[in-house]
Amino acid sequence: MNTSAVTPVERGLTPRSTGTYPVLELRDASKSFGHVVALNQVNLSVHAGEVLAVVGDNGAGKSTLVKVISGVHRPDMGELLVHGSRISPGHPTEARAQGISTVFQDLALVETLDVAANMFLGRQISRWGVFANRRRMIAEAEKTLRTYQGNVPSVRVAVGELSGGQRQSVAIARAIRENNPIVLMDEPTAALGVQETARVGSIINSLRAEGKAVVIVSHDLGFVFEHCDRIQVMRLGRSSATRDVRDTTREGVIGLITGAVPGDDTRDHRPRSGS
């Protein structure tokens, strides 16, 4: 039904040609789960051809941030802007249609289904509107994995039979295949070997070269300093500081993460009461 639904791509964006507004912007987003304030008035912006890293300690709100942007959670407050216009995805499909592709931390793969079915999870190619066009999905999945050197033996193999690195390849290839202007990756290198991490790094570099806006959530500061342009530090549900990688050091970022170095956000850090 929707292979070609993924073309907010050519909205006249070329690398670094961004005008005044960022491709993706989050303004004052808050999200609570019961009494836990996961996000507290968080701002974030990414331009085309830029790779933004989001770092922070466990429980800093990184994954919630990803889920708010990818449409899994709707923020309680605040707004999300893509190309300067406000969107309100209540569902991952809507976020995707607005140009946001996501690689989830848990990869969002179904172990019992084969690679081809996983590549088209939630966006199958149809025949006559109702039937699944397996032949085309298998062919497309093969093509995609060949392009991104997925290192996967066959698209007919169940994901449950693949190694961690191979699964990661499938999840990343799936997100990139959508060719959206905004790519979110939540811990893309967790549980990967050296070689596989390097491949993810080169994929990120090529996304930047294609003029995509990329957001990477990662614990791996070495990786972040090597592949990202800006670093946004999350702390206790707030974005405490944003630094250009050229203007900061690893120690500086660690200080911001742990709170040893005060961030730019000097507002009261206690979660607001009520609700």
Binding site: T93, L121, G122, A132
Partner: peptide, 28 residues
């Protein structure tokens, strides 16, 4: 046909395999 050939059937199978992943990827 419903279970083995339609998109609905594949979604059913995906949900049975990993409900969280199915939701994340936009299956209703």
């Amino acid at each position: 046909l419903l279970l083995h050939r339609t998109m609905f059937g594949w979604n059913v199978r995906a949900i049975g395999g990993n409900r969280v992943a199915a939701r994340s990827m936009g299956i209703r």
